[in-house]
Amino acid sequence: MKFRPLHDRVLVERVKEDTKTAGGIIIPDTATEKPSEGKVIATGPGTRGDDGKLNALDVKKGDKVLFGKWGGTEVKIDGKDLLIMKESDIMGVIG
């Protein structure tokens, strides 16, 4: 994939949730909400401060993150459904 986010943007791939309940009932895709958990695929270099120095991002490639339900912009790159969002849309890193 030849995509590099700019500034403080992050490219995230949603983590697939189980489509079965603990009791074995299969939940159809139309009845499930989109997961708000994902894996960071790529990050931008960061933002420039008032002093001109580059402030690096807190997240890095491979991090598992939680983000808001409506966070990010959905894009399709190389046939994959991905999200581009600002680092501030990410609520935290898991693990």
Results as ranks from 00 to 15, higher is better:
Met1Phe: 11
Phe3Asn: 07
Phe3Val: 14
Arg4Ile: 15
Pro5His: 06
Leu6Met: 11
Leu6Asn: 06
His7Tyr: 15
His7Met: 15
His7Thr: 11
Asp8Gln: 05
Val12Ser: 02
Glu13Trp: 00
Arg14Ala: 11
Arg14His: 04
Arg14Thr: 05
Lys16Glu: 15
Lys16Gly: 07
Lys16Pro: 08
Lys16Ala: 13
Glu17Met: 05
Glu17Phe: 07
Thr19Pro: 02
Thr19Asp: 15
Lys20Glu: 13
Lys20Met: 11
Lys20Ser: 13
Thr21Lys: 01
Ala22Trp: 14
Gly23Met: 13
Gly24His: 04
Gly24Val: 03
Ile25Gly: 01
Ile26Ala: 13
Ile26Thr: 14
Ile27Glu: 04
Pro28Leu: 04
Pro28Phe: 06
Asp29Glu: 12
Asp29Ser: 07
Thr30Ser: 10
Thr30Gln: 09
Thr30Ile: 09
Thr30Trp: 13
Ala31Ser: 14
Thr32Asn: 10
Glu33Pro: 03
Glu33Ala: 14
Glu33Phe: 15
Lys34Pro: 04
Pro35Ala: 00
Ser36Ala: 06
Ser36Val: 01
Gly38Asp: 04
Lys39Met: 07
Lys39Ser: 06
Val40Met: 04
Ile41Met: 09
Ala42Arg: 13
Thr43Val: 15
Thr43Gln: 05
Gly44Trp: 01
Gly44Ser: 05
Gly46Ile: 00
Thr47Glu: 12
Thr47Lys: 10
Thr47Asp: 07
Arg48Trp: 12
Gly49Ala: 09
Gly49Met: 09
Asp50Ala: 15
Asp50Ile: 12
Asp51Leu: 10
Gly52Val: 08
Lys53Asp: 12
Lys53Cys: 03
Asn55Ala: 08
Asn55Gln: 13
Ala56Val: 11
Leu57Ala: 05
Leu57Glu: 01
Asp58Leu: 08
Asp58Ala: 09
Asp58Phe: 08
Lys60His: 09
Lys60Tyr: 08
Gly62Met: 03
Asp63Gly: 09
Asp63Arg: 06
Lys64Pro: 00
Val65Met: 04
Val65Leu: 03
Val65Glu: 01
Leu66His: 07
Leu66Ile: 09
Phe67Ser: 00
Phe67Asp: 01
Phe67Ile: 03
Gly68Tyr: 03
Lys69Thr: 12
Gly72Thr: 02
Glu74Ser: 11
Val75Thr: 12
Lys76Cys: 10
Lys76Gly: 10
Ile77Pro: 00
Ile77Ser: 07
Asp78Glu: 15
Asp78Leu: 14
Lys80Cys: 04
Lys80Asn: 14
Leu82Ser: 06
Leu82Met: 11
Leu83Thr: 04
Ile84Asp: 03
Ile84Pro: 07
Met85Asn: 05
Lys86Ser: 15
Lys86Glu: 13
Glu87Tyr: 03
Glu87Arg: 03
Ser88His: 13
Asp89Gln: 13
Asp89His: 11
Ile90Phe: 00
Ile90Tyr: 01
Ile90Met: 07
Met91Leu: 14
Met91Asp: 09
Gly92Trp: 02
Gly92Ala: 02
Gly92Cys: 00
Val93Gln: 00
Val93Ser: 01
Ile94Gly: 03
Gly95His: 06
